[in-house]
Write a protein that binds this DNA or RNA. Sequence first.
DNA 1: CCATAATCTGAACACCATTCAGATTAAAGG
DNA 2: CCTTTAATCTGAATGGTGTTCAGATTATGG
Lengths: 203, 203
Amino acid sequence: MSTRASATAPRGTYHHGDLKAALVAEAIKLVRIEGPNHLSLREVAANCKVSPSAAYHYFPDKDSLVSAIGDYCFQELARIQEEAISKVVGNSAKAAKARLRESGRSYFQWAKKDPNLFRLMFGGFCSINKTDEADQDPAYLVLVRVLDDLLTHGVITKAARQNAELAAWPAVHGATTLIIEGHIPEEAYEAVLDTIEAALGIK
Amino acid sequence: MSTRASATAPRGTYHHGDLKAALVAEAIKLVRIEGPNHLSLREVAANCKVSPSAAYHYFPDKDSLVSAIGDYCFQELARIQEEAISKVVGNSAKAAKARLRESGRSYFQWAKKDPNLFRLMFGGFCSINKTDEADQDPAYLVLVRVLDDLLTHGVITKAARQNAELAAWPAVHGATTLIIEGHIPEEAYEAVLDTIEAALGIK
DNA sequence: CCATAATCTGAACACCATTCAGATTAAAGG
DNA sequence: CCTTTAATCTGAATGGTGTTCAGATTATGG
């Protein structure tokens, strides 16, 4: 999106340099602390040393800025997951199984680290573009790859591969949410991962 | 909490009658439409034909009113589930299995009917009182009963009964959220229920 | 019937999103 | 280099928000 200068550069000139990126970065910082509902566009602008109206040159309204945060977060979550599963090297069935577990763990760890960003992503704040099939949730594509890998290594059957995404993602996402919101204890998470493996017929 | 007159009674006298209940009822109505983040305390008060400051006699702040909505919703969800499983009569293994599925379906149907109330419940808006063990989420207790019933009828093993809640609730909750927010299609829900049965070793 | 406590109002303060006319500056063309 | 043009940001204004508090109104108990 933004190409020019540093997003956190101090304001010397009248023109900012890369205000759009700076606004998003500052908004993320604030949502992290105050939560998605208490985000103030004026505060974002002030912290960027810019008048409130300047933001409207890049975002038609506040919701649009929030959606930009959401877009960033979905990419970031996918990146984190990619990083986590790439740490489990090996072409074995055991490694493939470990990657499934790590993809689940990294999903939860991301949410635990920044609950407010997680709430923004899945709390109805940002409107995901579900129009196009191509620009699908990148984190979902990571999961697909992990599950394909399980089939390749014979860890799961072809029958289990059908709807395997539906055995993994809802459970992982639900457990994450319920822990974040204090409905089940964090210690329960590994047990949830066990139930996913059971649903897939692993072991 | 409130004991007196109808919550929706028109305003004839200076005193309202049961303002607290009226405020909660009106707030629910507005959250249903506008979503939890766009709730306005002033609008709630105005619709109750009362000055904004009147609300502060019953709620210390807006968040407290939102929490009251959450409390109501958790009770209501439990009631809906209770109603759903009570419709499946019979003391058989088949009936017990059907009740598990219906408890999952009713959870989703509740959320689908009022997504904004569901978002309020699990979006970090209301602070659940996790201090006491006694006043636990009533919907959770419904689930416990359904799972106990499965064990009694030999549908699941004693081993599967361990952590059975963790096989069911996260998957149901996660699937519900992901469908509501448009990440997976509604048609996938029954397949998710299948994976729960698989995780529990049913069939 | 009166005193007291409960309940609600009105006005105020500080903050918010959003709009728009106009000031400032960078970029492009001669 | 200088001027035109387009991009960018400001300042002020509008109408809405949560919250507080002194005071007006009404119900209740003695």
